[in-house]
Nucleic acid binder design. Structure first.
Lengths: 134, 134
DNA sequence: CCGTATCCACCTGGATACTG
DNA sequence: CAGTATCCAGGTGGATACGG
């Protein structure tokens, strides 16, 4: 995984139709990759070790946690500090940038929590109506 | 596409470790699916027709727009109104719920636009350092 | 115009095993 | 403990063609 593997909708030939949607997409790709947001939330209240995060999220594979953390590190959202002790110890911490991003992300999370029921209801209704039309 | 195909990290055995992350995940899955956010943003300033949206986003395939709109409709975020004219005409519009969601989404978009450069810089630095270690 | 259906390349992400 | 490597199933999304 190196450069711009996150292929993203560039809204191509039309120039600046809604102002800088290109950059939005690249961040949204981060937010949307299933694990990044969880990691960000876990790191919100201070630095944590690798396995600590792994335990907290639980369900994430070692591989995915590594990839996610690397991605966040690459984007300058978290720092990785290695303590050359035995056994090795690695701390991950949100950068200022990461803490900044966590604000709107948390807001989104809040909204999600508060409207979760409405969405589930809407889904049930939608699926119900589809079934009625079998 | 019907029920809960959006498989989501449930943070399984540990109960309520950070309060309702389950619902967060399901919304984030919507937000993260590469196109939903764009559609939401396009619909922010009023209802639009199918091909109108398609033209605005441009890069999205007909199939993906259909799937995205269905998903948003299922979640109660947009309404779909069919005018039985010839040729047929279908309008999509944000619901109140959808407009509510668009707030934190827009906030996220704003943040993305404002910090796009920092992230790109961080990426370049990260990739550069990796290359130096070839 | 607004879709649905089909096919298929690619990517994501889990399981597992192995190193420093 | 903190990774890396490999393998592989399943999902995602583009292209294309066709239907109402």
């Amino acid at each position: 995984m190196k450069p711009e593997n996150t292929r993203v909708p560039v809204l191509p030939p039309s120039p600046a139709q809604h102002e800088g949607c290109r950059g939005v997409a690249s961040v949204l790709a981060r937010v949307g990759d299933k694990w990044s947001v969880f990691v960000i939330m876990m790191l919100f209240d201070g630095p944590k070790r690798f396995n600590e995060i792994k335990r907290l999220i639980d369900g994430i594979s070692q591989r995915m946690l590594t990839l996610t953390l690397r991605g966040l590190e690459r984007d300058g959202l978290v720092t990785r500090t290695v303590f050359p002790t035995i056994p090795p110890r690695v701390d991950y911490e949100l950068t200022d940038l990461g803490r900044g991003l966590s604000q709107p992300v948390m807001a989104l999370g809040e909204w999600a929590k508060n409207h979760q029921i409405e969405i589930e209801t809407a889904r049930a209704r939608f699926d119900g109506r589809r079934e009625a039309a079998e």
